[in-house]
């Protein structure tokens, strides 16, 4: 961590770091403790705007919105985490193997990747999710899947570039097994490219989850998430109660802003 700070001593990285740490801390605390029980209804405090008692106001059932946003943000972050884990993990694996070994498999896979990355990932995810049906696990699986090509492409380019460098030839001469060359010799050197991509991936995952759940093909009706809440909050706007939507939206913006600044900061050249 300290090394990352020394390397990326810029405005983007620092601000992104502060925002991300703030949001993640808030969400982690929200998993353990919230000001109110997110599900507790209060008939005396229905659909209120922000107040001292309820900092973000309440919904139709008098439930505390701040507590619910914390819960929803937690769910969204967990989904985003697994989406990135799946997309970046498999993407890196595929990119590393195709980039290092090349050949026909590489050609074919990259053609498929090209076609898939041309297609907006949200649209692709939407269609597949529509077939599979909603649910948290489906969202993770499908978003993770549609995120693979973008990671695979980045990683492939880097592996194909680095495998030609002398230090890799040297490792081969020293008898280093191929697996170790991929993992210990090349992988650490693609981090300057992979880390920003992961950070942008988080950003896209939060955005995609929100869009999917907003459209009703994301998490199921019984589950929480920021996208789900955003969808609920729509009904309040027309009744002149915009707070719900604005707070949920702001939470999404802060999450995305944090990740995107981190990614941007890591890409800045010193």
């Amino acid at each position: 961590m300290k090394k990352l700070f020394e390397k990326h001593n810029n405005w983007f990285f620092k601000t992104g770091f502060v925002i991300t740490v703030f949001m993640v801390t808030l969400v982690v605390i929200g998993q353990i403790w919230t000001p109110y029980d997110p599900a507790a209804m209060d008939a005396a405090a229905k659909a209120q705007g922000p107040s001292l008692a309820h900092f973000m106001g309440t919904d139709n059932f008098g439930r505390d919105l701040f507590s619910r946003v914390l819960e929803g943000a937690g769910a969204t972050l967990i989904i985003a985490f697994f989406v990135v884990l799946l997309g970046a993990g498999l993407g890196t694996l595929i990119g590393a193997l195709t980039g290092y070994f090349g050949g026909v498999v590489d050609e074919v896979l990259m053609r498929i990747c090209d076609a898939l990355t041309a297609f907006p990932s949200v649209l692709l995810a939407l269609i597949i999710l529509a077939i599979l049906g909603p649910g948290r696990l489906n969202v993770i699986g499908v978003l993770g899947l549609v995120f693979i090509p973008s990671f695979a492409r980045i990683v492939r380019t880097e592996f194909a570039r680095i495998k030609k460098l002398n230090y890799v030839s040297l490792a081969k001469l020293q008898g280093v097994p191929t697996g170790r060359i991929l993992l210990r010799h090349i992988l650490p050197n693609i981090m300057p490219v992979l880390l920003p991509a992961i950070s942008i991936g988080f950003n896209n995952a939060v955005l995609a989850e929100a869009s999917m759940s907003f459209l009703g093909v994301g998490v199921s009706a019984s589950e929480v998430s920021l996208g789900r809440m955003l969808s609920d909050s729509q009904n309040y706007i027309l009744r002149g109660l915009p707070w719900y939507a604005i707070f949920v939206g702001l939470t999404i913006v802060l999450l995305i802003l944090g990740f995107s600044l981190l990614g941007e900061g890591m890409r800045q050249e010193e």
């Binding site: 869009s211 955003l230 915009p242 604005i246 939206g249 913006v253 995305i256 995107s260 600044l261």
Partner: peptide
Amino acid sequence: NQIVMAVPAFFVAILLMVFFGV
């Protein structure tokens, strides 16, 4: 720019709807 890029289209939509519509 950096901040605006982090605002998803659907949230811009909600803000516009609240401000110009409501």
